[in-house]
Amino acid sequence: MKKNYFLTVLAFFLSAGLFSQDYKWSVEANYPISVGDEIGNDAPGLLDFGIKYRFLDLKIVKIGAGINAGVFKKNISDDFKPVFTDFDETNWLIQPKVFAEFTIPGIQKLHPSVGLGYTFIESKFEGESFNLGSFDNTESSGGINLNVGLSYDITKRFFLQAQYDYIREKDTYNYEGQDLKVKRNLGYLKFGVGFRF
């Protein structure tokens, strides 16, 4: 049901954009790679999707807002021998932001960008271990997100891109009745493709 809803909404935006000439919207698909501190057990990235809307065009710079959602997943199976462990770790990153996208005079196909936002991190641990038995835990955290990127136009609609997200994650854990504050410097490289409409 959710898949059909998502495809219907995506088809609507794509068809509406085909008749537009100013290309205010774009969608993107990226492959994320962790290059900073670890979330949990450093689950590898699977996919990152994003959508952006440019609401102000100042010729050399376009200002807009966007949101990305990425998923990182890993199965931990007997990594902690000799204790039996078998569980799945899934980390979702939801990243709303505002951004500025630049056009370089003389190099019209190249577009550097900077963005500022917040990253919400939802982590789920589900499985079993020798000392805990079966478990199903969810943790939430987040932090300020700084984004820098570079895109290259293949055509007026299609582009390639690379970007880097720095996230200053803050979290509080309760350990034996005490609240412990943890700060991490997360970093993600993303390489992908996009479509303007």
Rank of each mutant, 00 (worst) to 15 (best):
K2D: 13
N4S: 09
N4G: 03
L7V: 02
A11C: 13
A11M: 06
A11I: 03
F12N: 10
L14F: 15
G17M: 04
F19W: 15
Q21W: 15
Q21D: 15
W25E: 04
S26V: 08
V27R: 01
E28V: 06
A29D: 12
N30T: 12
P32E: 00
I33K: 00
E38H: 11
L46K: 15
L46F: 15
L47C: 10
L47W: 14
K52A: 09
R54L: 13
D57E: 05
V61K: 07
I63L: 15
I63V: 13
G66Q: 05
K74C: 04
N75K: 13
I76N: 09
D79Y: 13
D86S: 03
D86W: 10
E89A: 11
T90V: 04
T90C: 01
W92L: 01
W92M: 05
I94V: 14
Q95S: 12
V98C: 09
T103D: 07
P105I: 07
G106C: 10
I107E: 04
H111P: 00
S113F: 00
L116A: 08
Y118H: 01
T119S: 06
K124R: 13
F125K: 08
F130K: 14
N137H: 14
I144N: 03
N145I: 02
L146C: 05
L150S: 04
F158S: 08
D165Q: 12
Y166E: 03
I167G: 03
D171Q: 11
T172Q: 10
E176C: 02
E176H: 14
G177F: 09
G177K: 08
L180E: 10
G187V: 04
G187F: 11
K190P: 10
K190V: 00
V193R: 00
G194W: 04
G194N: 01
